[in-house]
């Protein structure tokens, strides 16, 4: 059978015979447009949840690090030197939770506010011990030195030690553990 538009052979139904422009593909165009439109609307409406479903990990933080408990605030009330504490960090990996242990420093309170420092050196990432004898943080790798407040004294570190976001909830000091980009003068969170 010839499907050319002008032959009209064997054709029944509502095809208007007089239009020159009409092709097999659009000869019955009104219903076609209607159908196409309806299907497109429903298709679009349905593709929204599909897309949001597929993009869920990008639109919400599925690998977010939550708040970790450090301890009751009373414990840190009378600190005179930075105190090293181990925290458990729950990290979400989709439907899994990865638990790991990290070290942090709680600094002596200033005006009642507790600060929490990351022990990771902003130079190349060694973890910095508090050296009691010298009352300083001294990095074992390239001997960057920081004060009790984490301020840089000397050495190759490009910035002070990094503050971690912390808060007090129901008398418990909490921290959000994060990593920061090394070797740059500003504190930038590593995603």
């Amino acid at each position: 059978m010839n499907s050319s538009p002008t032959s009209g052979e064997g054709r029944t139904g509502a095809a208007p015979p007089s239009q020159v422009e009409v092709e097999p593909i659009n000869r019955r165009s009104f219903l076609g447009v209607l159908l196409g439109f309806g299907a497109m609307v429903v298709g679009a409406a349905l593709s929204v949840p599909l897309l949001r479903f597929a993009l869920h990990p990008l639109l919400t933080k599925t690998t977010d690090i939550g708040w970790s408990d450090i301890g009751k605030i009373e414990e840190f009330a009378s600190l005179t030197a930075p105190m090293k504490k181990l925290i458990t960090v729950d990290q979400r990996d989709g439907w899994r939770k990865i638990v790991s242990e990290k070290a942090i420093y709680v600094l002596p309170a200033k005006d009642g506010v507790l600060r929490v420092l990351s022990p990771i050196c902003p130079h190349l990432g060694c973890s910095i011990p508090w050296v009691e004898a010298k009352q300083q943080f001294i990095c074992p790798c390239h001997t960057a030195i920081f004060t009790l407040d984490g301020i840089r004294v000397s050495g190759p570190a490009p910035r002070p030690m990094d503050d971690l976001e912390s808060k007090v909830e129901e008398g418990v000091l909490k921290v959000r553990y994060q990593y920061f980009r090394q070797l740059i003068p500003t504190r930038e969170v590593l995603a």
């Binding site: 054709r11 019955r28 349905l46």
Partner: peptide, 26 residues
Amino acid sequence: LPTERFYPRQVLMDTVVALLMICVLG
């Protein structure tokens, strides 16, 4: 019997029911 082509009326009917179906499911 005289025949009618699948397109457009039958296609329209099929599509209408299919769309209704998906709306009900939705």
